[in-house]
Design a protein around this nucleic acid. Structure first.
Lengths: 158, 158
DNA sequence: AGGAAATTGAAATTCATTTTCAATTAGACA
DNA sequence: TGTCTAATTGAAAATGAATTTCAATTTCCT
């Protein structure tokens, strides 16, 4: 089956690696690294997955009152462009971001009661997707798959 | 494989059936059927799939200048609540509606160049989705799967 | 240190979606 | 058929997330 549960918090190693990657990206594009940028990136990488710009902003505000929403927003966009974060929109229509490593693809189980988001990957499904695309002469570049329902916890407390 | 291509325009029979179903729904809820409502529904069912409220409104405006956007919007919402239309949001973040028959579930291939949307269904994928959900103790109620890439036409003209 | 270019953050803007409200209409019942 | 009440309509306003603007500030190359 090869599925994997919710990722644990980003390891320190992964975070350092990502910050390095961002640094290269900035240099390559002639962009600058700033205190705000660095802080937002750190918070984002530590915070874990599927945060909205708003959520991240609120979290950051607690510690650093001088970082504006716009900067958080722009930094997330930047991370996305640099390939370090994925932008995702689920049924609630909010744009969420999650740290992304190169090969790391996964889909989501979304609880309609508590809102929890669990990640999974299933290679067999991916192979079938390819086949379907082929049948239509379609070249698939990416996909999106979300299962909506009730997580173990919410289902049990019913 | 059991896939199906883009549906052809709704058959007359299907349309009548749906209008009947709507009528029941309205009566059941104590709602009224109006000239505007009827026209919007007719246009919607004839127009085919994946229209936005805006698109449908523009189309309707050509023939009936007295039907406002709000009415079109509200009628689509109503169709959705009555189970006759599905609301979908793809990568462009616009809310689209499509006629829906009871058992009729399908997913989408979306061309990133021309924007065409092709429907498909694959029972094997659905079974695997169920299995994945089970593994997590998750009860899946619905799902969403979209493959983004290039359709045959766009791929060939590259 | 000097200066060009990027960044910041508050505020303004955009744009689809949703709500408000006064005027109109449907349709149940007499 | 007329009456009445609740639903409907449509223009306009409101909402709210996402994005852009702009003047002030900061980075970092030389």
């Amino acid at each position: 089956m090869k599925t994997s549960g919710r990722r644990t918090t980003e390891g320190i190693k992964g975070i350092k690696q990502k910050k390095e990657k961002l640094k290269s990206f900035l240099k390559e594009k002639g962009l600058k690294s700033t205190r705000q940028r660095d802080l937002v990136v750190s918070e984002f990488l530590e915070m874990g997955e599927h945060v909205t710009a708003e959520e991240l902003y609120k979290e950051i505000s607690k510690k650093y009152s001088d970082i504006g929403f716009t900067t958080v927003y722009r930094t997330l966009k930047l991370l996305n462009k640099s390939g370090l974060a994925a932008e995702r929109v689920f049924a609630d229509n909010l744009t969420r971001y999650e740290p992304l490593s190169a090969e790391d693809h996964h889909d989501h189980l979304i609880c309609m009661k508590c809102g929890s988001i669990t990640e999974f990957q299933d290679l067999r499904i991916e192979r079938l997707q390819e086949r379907v695309a082929d049948e239509f002469g379609f070249v698939a570049v990416s996909h999106k798959m979300e299962l909506y329902g009730y997580c173990k916890k919410c289902k049990d407390n019913a």
